[in-house]
Design a binder for these strands. Structure first.
Lengths: 226, 226
DNA sequence: AAGCCCCCTTAACAATTTGATAATCTTATA
DNA sequence: TATAAGATTATCAAATTGTTAAGGGGGCTT
């Protein structure tokens, strides 16, 4: 799945639940942060800025409902996905939750597998493809929608990373992108890869395109030009 | 918004739910009619001819499922959008509902915010021109109306899911559809299916068509081209 | 109602592709 | 020319998809 790197904060006061769920979510490639009460949930949310927050309703310090209310009142969490964990028959909480802008509910008990599936579907729901336009430079045409590059109308297919890299560089022809910028944009600020990794991808692009459209600026970075 | 004047009938036996939801839908410019049981739902549907009918499954007099069955059996409601309200874990009802011609289902509890956006998306869905027109690409002709595909005038019959998938991909030849997009479109945003399910359907399409018209873009998705 | 068939989904495993790294050359430039 | 930065290449591990078979359900026929 392309869910890599998504951060999930999960707050529950039962260590067992916390561990099982967080273990399974990690297996699926998510980055999991845990909290054992409402206060900690709020604090960690501010610290890590998770993409999804799962709050148990019944927790010490602050209930999930209170925590949600506080989080939602802050602009930075206005659009964060927040879901509640509730006991099966806890109608009261449901009603309260309704008014707090929770995005969904998960009823306990729930199997780890189902939990993972549900989380997947949450992200699926909000993952909309970014509107991308074609880049046209000389004999080169880059079609983000097709994940394809055409050189003199000859289709050339690049691998995902290669394509992303090319699109990024070509988004501003002539501008030099620092290696750090490239790493942040294409690999993400939290992924750590070696120095040579960029070079190798650059090389593959040059090789596949067959033309020299990526210039090395030694000691600085790369730029795209035709 | 272009939703002005759209009539929504919502049937639920819990007055609170009814009120919250109907209030929020009205805020968004919809015209809301309410019913508190299955019989009333049917009666009001006949009276007002709503554009969308939301039926709670568990209702007195007649369940949402029964009401849906009755409505669907009448020509005037053949094409009306009908969605069910179900409890989160009531998988059985989901399955039955979809087979009765429900267009989707909504799980309770649901925040008013989410409810409104769902309703919006329902209308968005039907306002778009249905792929009623045939798709003609090279030797391939897709006839959505008869659920049939022809390759060099040879009829090929695909199963429902396979057909929907093919139509979706073929609706924009060359464009890559992300796995997430496909899941949302073909399976719905709340249905949970495993990762390999798409692949298997893709494989069957490829197999039945006998030609290579679906390309895999690894790590991204699939696209249709000839 | 029993039997049969088709559709959808999943599990399990195979096959493939991609991405990252190490090791070794090249080259620009101070 | 010495040196650091980048280019190349081969290689391995990880990620992703392909394939096959099996099972559950529903509907249809007998």
């Amino acid at each position: 799945m392309a869910t890599a790197g998504k951060k999930i904060l999960i707050a529950d006061d039962e260590p067992d639940i916390l561990e099982i769920i967080s273990y399974n979510l990690q297996l699926s490639g998510y980055q999991v942060i845990t909290a054992k009460d409402g206060d900690q949930a709020i604090q960690k949310a501010k610290e890590f800025h998770p993409d999804l927050i799962i709050l148990d309703i019944m927790m010490p310090k602050k209930s999930g409902i209170e925590a949600c209310k506080i989080l939602r009142s802050q602009p930075e969490f206005e659009k964060t996905l927040i879901v509640f964990l509730t006991a099966l028959n806890d109608e009261l909480s449901h009603v309260k939750g309704l008014e707090l802008g929770a995005d969904d509910f998960i009823t306990k008990p729930i199997s780890p597998k189902v939990m993972v599936s549900k989380v997947n579907s949450f992200f699926r729901r909000i993952n909309k493809p970014e509107p991308t336009k074609t880049i046209d430079v000389g004999p080169l045409r880059i079609e983000p929608e097709e994940y394809m590059v055409y050189y003199n109308h000859e289709p050339i297919s690049l691998a995902k990373k290669e394509f992303e890299l090319l699109v990024y560089l070509a988004s501003k022809p002539g501008r030099v992108f620092l290696r750090n910028e490239i790493l942040n944009q294409i690999w993400g600020s939290e992924v750590i890869v070696g120095d040579r990794t960029i070079d190798v991808h650059i090389r593959k692009i040059r090789q596949k395109l067959g033309i020299d459209c990526i210039t090395t600026v030694k000691g600085v970075g790369y730029k795209f030009e035709v």
